[in-house]
Design a protein around this nucleic acid. Structure first.
Length: 805
DNA sequence: AGCACGCCGACT
DNA sequence: GTCGGCGTGCTC
């Protein structure tokens, strides 16, 4: 038997199948979708078995070295899906397959140098001898650590002479949580061994006595605790051959310490009922269909998801639920765990490699039926998917910003189509692409335009900050917002303040000469952080002390401009003394679990005001929030991205939705310098449809999605002349390769022209139909592969970019 | 990615 | 004449 293998060598030259012979003892075991170790050139690499045949044109076939899995980690469906990813996201096959699996399954490579024979030691040249005096095997890296260049040459010589050999090893990453356990090698001999012990060995005696009473294996840590002993005592017993030590796998459960109350399905409202029926129908008929649930915040989408899943589970099928970034919505996870208990696996980025692997294995082994997770959970290795749900469909996190640059929505469509099952996209503010498709009838539109239990949508007041300024209010709170905040404090209700800017100030400027503190490595101004009294770059992490004098003119009149969350926090303390504030941004939630902790505190009423960035816009649902304030609504409106208006509208609508979700009515105050802008104006009346129409008109005029597809080629290099030269060549090549109907823009500098000392230029392609585009782009990569490999040049191609920065 | 092969400049 | 620079091409 011959198998065809994709090897773990991500380059253009090896992005194809390689044939291998299967030795007899592996014939029965091997299957497509399994990981294998194969010899590749002089070394060994990991690979995936894609298919098998009985004939080949290759005459010098090598044998498969090892099979790594008992059951395939990739199903036939996922193998095919990977193939599709390769062309739709323009990546190597191996990259596509690796993206589908937990990182723990990725191979780790080790190179070792081994003494062929003990006797060879004397044959080695003097310089090498000391390395092998006390051991047979030395890691390759150890030699690299010394800058003794001739050492490598000496090793090579010794290898050709046969004194040394180079060994290539392939290992899994640490995949399983292991603990050390000890047990007596023989229980029968134990009492005898006890007597034979030296009289002085009191500590060892204690341990043996423990095992006489408890004849079971026990973890080292537990034993140290229970038998009042130490590591060194155990070591002696192991060395004497009385005890044996072994690594044993233990399961991890990130939610182990949590108790979930079981909930039952709620009675559906008429609106929910109307929405769920077409979904049931699709499930019953075993027909693929994509639904868009356009449901306002608080309209009860989650209950619809839960009951659709329940239906699918009854049929013996499985469900995938994607949520934007699960750690951001612990409340969401909780609802799924409460309804489906141990049938749920949770996959999100805050889990460790090992924890992710454990959750993945639950899916792989069929021990769970529902997976709730972030983007990559779309690749969950289920074999009988009955429904896929993508909540907050418009979120940017569903687009992976590194290779393979896929959008989870596209993968979901592909998979749902394969399993002939419904795909549900849910959002209060669907992306233009999705809504346009649902209007064209490609997706079926289901609307939930009212909140459950007759709860009203919050009233929205837009405050013109220019007017505030004119009337003499120079603070960051408008009179309206300040008044409402005070009101909430008096009534004991909670408020949410949203500001899309962390740190203290957005930039620091000298009043005398106008000099603005800039990052030395990026073309971006530095942000002042109060806690560390330093200037930070939010792109490369550069940090410097806050200067006392202007570094350009020595003036001492340095002022902060633009406010970040830290400044707001300080300001609140000044104008509303006594208000308890929780600040949530990247800086306060960096530690694992702190996000959830802060939210819990707020939920328990330990603070009056929740102040935060993006991350508080989604999913939080607390009954006592009756006021939402947006401090600077225009902050993201003027970004150089054609989706800036769309994002502003979505974000404002999402934050507004945090208010008044239960009995108490909600109010929203939006502060802005451009109240007349449509993406702010339409939020006032929660008018998605009008926003959609207005924005579609603009997209059409400017030839942007959903009217055109776009692809962006970004080039970066430490030398600016080089970037311009290459981008120019690429642009010219693309321009003459494509049809006249397509628009090729560039080369232009990216909106941040330099990050981490690399200059960045780009070329943008707008097109409606270019079947050869993928091949043209592949050619571009192939052309510059040499310079890319040399490490200075980077060319990244995104066939459907989401964020253009 | 690694590694070997191979073709040009500066040294024992 | 040889050592070593890194451009080129191959890995079943």
């Amino acid at each position: 038997m011959i198998v065809q293998v994709v090897v773990d060598v991500p380059t253009g030259g090896t992005d194809r199948l390689f044939d291998y012979k299967v030795p007899d003892h592996l014939q029965e075991i091997i299957e497509s979708g399994m990981r294998v170790i194969v010899p590749f050139g002089p070394r060994k690499v990991q690979g995936f078995v894609i298919s098998s045949t009985i004939e080949t044109d290759i005459d010098k076939l090598k044998d498969i070295d090892e099979v790594l899995d008992v059951t395939p980690v990739l199903t036939p469906e996922l193998l095919e899906l990977g193939d599709w990813l390769t062309t739709s996201a323009l990546c190597f096959k191996i990259t596509a397959y690796q993206a589908m699996l937990p990182a723990a399954l990725k191979a780790k490579y080790k190179k070792e140098v081994k003494l062929t024979h003990k006797e060879c030691l004397s044959q080695l040249p003097f310089e090498l001898r000391k390395w092998f005096e006390h051991r047979d095997v030395v890691l390759w890296e150890e030699f690299l650590g010394t800058d003794d260049k001739p050492l490598i040459a000496l090793i090579k010589k010794a290898v050709t002479d046969g004194f040394l050999e180079v060994i290539y090893k392939v290992n899994d990453k640490v995949t399983k949580k292991m603990i050390k356990v000890v047990k007596p090698i023989s229980y029968e001999n134990l009492s005898m061994q006890l007597e034979e012990l030296d009289k002085r060995a009191q500590k060892q005696k204690q341990v043996i006595e423990y095992f006489l009473k408890h004849p079971n294996q026990i973890s080292v840590n537990a034993l140290i605790e229970l038998a009042n002993t130490t590591r060194s005592t155990l070591k002696s017993l192991i060395d004497k051959g009385i005890l044996s030590e072994e690594d044993v796998e233990v399961a991890r459960d990130p939610y182990a310490n949590r108790i979930f109350k079981k909930t039952v399905p709620l009675q559906l409202t008429t609106n929910q009922e109307a929405v769920i029926q077409p979904i049931y129908q699709s499930i019953n008929e075993g027909r693929h269909q994509t639904f868009l649930i356009h449901g306002v915040t608080g309209s009860g989408k989650t209950e619809v998801y839960l009951q659709s899943i329940a239906k699918v589970l009854e049929e013996g099928k499985e469900a995938i639920v994607l949520v934007p970034e699960i750690s951001l919505t612990p409340q969401m996870v909780q609802r799924f765990k409460e309804r489906f208990g141990s049938l749920v696996a949770v996959l999100h980025s805050a889990l460790s490699t090992g924890e992710k692997y454990d959750e993945w294995r639950k899916i792989h082994h069929g021990r769970v039926k529902v997976v709730v997770g972030a983007r990559s959970a779309i690749f969950a290795p289920f074999k009988n998917i009955g429904i896929i749900i993508i909540d907050e469909e418009h979120e940017a996190t569903y687009k992976q910003e590194e290779n393979p640059r896929y959008h989870a929505r596209d993968v979901a469509i592909k998979r749902a189509n394969f399993y002939k099952c419904p795909l549900i996209l849910g959002s209060a503010t669907p992306s233009l692409e999705t809504y346009a498709r649902s209007k064209k009838g490609v997706y079926r539109l289901l609307e939930m335009l009212e909140r459950v239990n007759d709860v009203k949508l919050p009233t929205v007041e837009v405050v013109d900050m220019r007017e505030e300024l004119k009337s003499g209010n120079r603070s960051m709170f408008s009179n309206a917002l300040f008044e409402k905040l005070t009101q909430r404090l008096n009534r004991g209700e909670q408020s949410v303040l949203f500001l899309n800017r962390r740190g203290y100030s957005t930039f620091v400027m000298c009043r005398d000469c106008g000099y603005v503190a800039q990052c030395p490595h990026c073309d971006i101004s530095l942000t002042y952080h109060q806690t560390s009294r330093s200037l930070k770059c939010h792109y490369c992490g550069h940090q410097e002390k806050m200067p006392q004098k202007c570094s350009s003119c020595d003036s001492e009149h340095i002022r902060f401009f633009g406010s970040g969350t830290q400044k707001v926090e300080e300001e609140i303390a000044k104008v509303l003394p006594g208000a308890r504030v929780i600040r949530m941004d990247v800086d306060t939630t960096r530690k694992k679990g702190s996000h959830e902790r802060l939210l819990t505190q707020f939920g328990e009423g330990k603070a009056d005001i929740l102040l935060g960035t993006q991350m508080i816009a989604k999913g939080l649902d607390f009954p006592n929030i009756t006021l939402v304030g947006v401090l600077a609504a225009d902050s993201m409106l003027h970004l150089p991205d054609f989706r800036a208006s769309e994002r502003t509208f979505q974000l404002l609508t999402q934050v507004s939705g945090r208010a008044g979700r239960h009995q108490l009515p909600g109010e929203v105050v939006i502060q802005t310098y451009t109240p007349e802008h449509y993406s702010i104006d339409f939020v006032r009346d929660h008018d998605f449809i009008s926003f959609f129409e207005k924005e579609m008109g603009i997209r059409k005029l400017q030839s942007y999605p959903p009217y055109y597809f776009i692809t962006v080629i970004q080039v970066s290099h430490p030398e600016i002349t080089k970037v311009i030269e290459i981008t120019d060549k690429i642009t010219a090549f693309v321009r003459r390769s494509l049809s006249e109907k397509s628009i090729v823009l560039g080369p232009v500098a990216c909106s941040i022209p330099r990050i981490k000392d690399r200059y960045r230029y780009q070329c943008m392609i707008k097109y409606k139909n270019e079947p050869t585009l993928v091949n043209i782009l592949k050619e571009v990569i192939e052309n510059y592969k040499r310079e890319i490999n040399q490490g200075n040049l980077q060319v990244s191609i995104d066939m459907n970019p989401f964020v253009l920065m």
